[in-house]
Amino acid sequence: MATLTEAPPPPAPAAPEKAPPRRRGRRTPYWLLLPGILWLVVFFAAPMVYQASTSVQTGSLEEGYEVTWHFATYWDALSAYWPQFLRSVAYAASATVLCLLLGYPLAYLIAFRAGRWRNLIMILVIAPFFTSFLIRTLAWKTILADGGPVVDALGTLHVLDVTGRLGWTSGDRVLATPLAVVCGLTYNFLPFMILPLYTSLERIDGRLHEAAGDLYAKPSTVFRKVTFPLSMPGVVSGTLLTFIPATGDYVNASLLGSADTGMIGNVIQSQFLRVLDYPTAAALSFLLMAAILAMVTLYIRRSGTEELV
């Protein structure tokens, strides 16, 4: 265990080299924090406490709900709905990987090669946000319609045979299959991947590339040794911004999926609204939160927090 004295001094923020602030200013940080803290209490802490309470209650609408510390709800929920948990993680992870594969080249292009088209391409990336999430997802039902040009092309190229064997599609359709759900997730969260990637790529000093070239690095080596490592903060925040909301998403699964592509978000929604089993729904929400928190912590530990800044 490291002792206190051995701890390296943290990189101090550029402290003003003046005398310590006057006494009067001491409370200022608290006052400045107040709006933020109030916001957190009202819109984060209070609902969390309420949900936590709901998850250990038992009862019905007729008899009311009472806190009975019935923790078995958590176990029951997990054992009933673990397939949906796994499916959510798998879909979200696939969508995140796809977003990275699609988003990185595009962000790279915008940052280094777009020249005067840069702003235009950026606007094109953000433009879909100007219409509703729902409308954009519904549009995919037309794009991927059975017998439509996309599905026909995929069928002719025998792509559907391959994906069908992998269990991603069934027969000669794409809609109402896992593939459609993953595609929908990828499409909807792609900008969340591109924007942070672009920001961190754009910050890279072009002279570093030149220097690497001067040292006889091939373009592929420059990318591997210079560009990609320097863009890691963007990769980490991009994957987080994509993966976290994608795991809890239920719109894509309900519009583009079928009965066997239900994600955990769909379960929580139907437990809350249809079955009216509020405790199970609350317990599932907490389990989802815990699962995401655990995965994200692991991920950040492995990729290094300092790169997130």
């Binding site: 406490v49 309420y50 936590a52 309470s53 709901t54 250990v56 209650q57 009862g59 609408l61 007729e62 008899e63 009311g64 709900y65 009472e66 806190v67 509020y278």
Partner: peptide
């Protein structure tokens, strides 16, 4: 506050 808060927020029975 957690314990108090948790026990405090049950849903009352439907006022029949």
């Amino acid at each position: 506050g957690a314990l108090g808060a948790l026990t405090g927020c049950g849903i009352p029975a439907a006022g029949r």
